[in-house]
Design a binder for these strands. Structure first.
Lengths: 148, 148
DNA sequence: ACGAGAATGTTGGTTGAACCAACGTTGGTG
DNA sequence: CACCAACGTTGGTTCAACCAACATTCTCGT
C-alpha cells in the first residue's frame, strides 16, 4: 500500500460539523489560491465588494457589513490603500470616522477578482450538477440565516 | 436603527465558498463550546474516536486517519496522556514508533463526548428537517470525496 | 552486508482567521 | 456640562493548519 491506510473513523466521516468544516477547508484552499493570483486575500475581496455595492462608508460600517472586526479592518484598509484600490479620507461631518471609497483601479481589480472567484466556485462545486449546487446553497443559507 | 445597518453584499451572500465557511464557523463555535464542557477540543475527539474505532496505532498512522499533522499529533497525544485518557508506549517491533492505546477512562470520556457532540450537531442542524439534514450530508460528502 | 533513502517522533517555527481589551478622540444626549 | 457611545487604532490571544529540520530507526536494492 502506498496511500492513507484506511478511511477516517466512522464517527468523523458523517459528522455534519466536520463535513462542513472539511468542505470549507477545501473551498478556502481553492479560493485563497485564486485570490492569491492577484496578491489578495478573502478580507480584501469582501471589503472591495462591500464598497462597490454600497458606496463609500466608514470602516466601522464596512466591518458590520462584512463581519470583519474593527481591528482587522484597519489592516485590510491599509493593504488596499497602499495598492491604491481604495482611498481613506477623514469624514468632515464626523471627525471620528474615515470615509473609505473604492477607486477606479479598485473597481477594475474587483472585476478581475470576480472572474477568479467564479472559476474557484466552479472548481469547488465541480462534482455537483447545477440543481444540487442550488440545493446546497439553499441548505447552507437556511443554516446561516437561522443562527446569528 | 440599532442593528447591523443592512445586509452583507450580494456578492458574498450567495457565494458557496463563503456560505460553507460561515456554516463551518457556526458549527465550530457550537462544537467547541460543547467539547469545552469536557475541557477538550476537536483534535482530542478525533484522536479518541480513531483509537476507539481502529484500536492501538502509531502516532503517524493516527495522523493519517484523522488528518492531524504529525507535529500537532504530538501535542494532542500529550494532552490526552496527561489526563490518562490514552497511553503512549514504545513499539518493541519498531523502535521509531509509539503505540497509542485508549484507556478505559478514555472510552468513558469518548462516550460522554459523543453525547455532547450529538447535541451540538442537533443544534447546528436545528433549522433543517431530517430529510434536509441527510441531503446536506450527502452533498457535502460528495464534495469532500471528490476533492482530496 | 552495506549504504541510501524512507518513516517516525519531536521541536520550533509560520500563517490566516477570528477574536478581545484598552485607549484617545470625537459626537450625541440628558 | 457631564456622561456615555462610537470610532479608529494598537497590541495582543487563540486555534487550526501547515512546514522545515533533526536524530533515530527501519527497509530495500544492490
Amino acid at each position: 500500500m502506498d496511500t492513507p491506510e484506511g478511511p477516517p473513523p466512522q464517527r468523523l466521516r458523517t459528522l455534519p460539523s466536520r463535513l462542513t468544516n472539511h468542505a470549507a477547508q477545501i473551498a478556502n484552499r481553492i479560493v485563497d489560491q485564486a485570490l492569491g493570483q492577484a496578491g489578495l486575500r478573502r478580507y480584501h475581496y469582501a471589503l472591495l465588494a462591500a464598497l462597490e455595492e454600497y458606496g463609500p462608508a466608514s470602516q466601522a460600517a464596512l466591518g458590520r457589513r462584512t463581519g470583519i472586526d474593527r481591528s482587522d479592518m484597519v489592516a485590510t484598509v491599509n493593504d488596499l490603500a497602499e495598492r491604491q484600490l481604495l482611498e481613506r479620507a477623514p469624514d468632515p461631518d464626523d471627525r471620528r470616522r474615515n470615509i473609505i471609497t473604492i477607486t477606479e483601479a479598485g473597481r477594475n481589480q474587483l472585476t478581475h477578482l470576480d472572474r477568479l472567484l467564479a472559476a474557484a466556485q466552479d472548481e469547488f462545486l465541480s462534482p455537483l450538477p447545477p440543481a444540487d449546487r442550488q440545493n446546497l446553497i439553499d441548505l447552507l443559507t437556511r443554516l446561516v440565516d437561522h443562527h446569528g
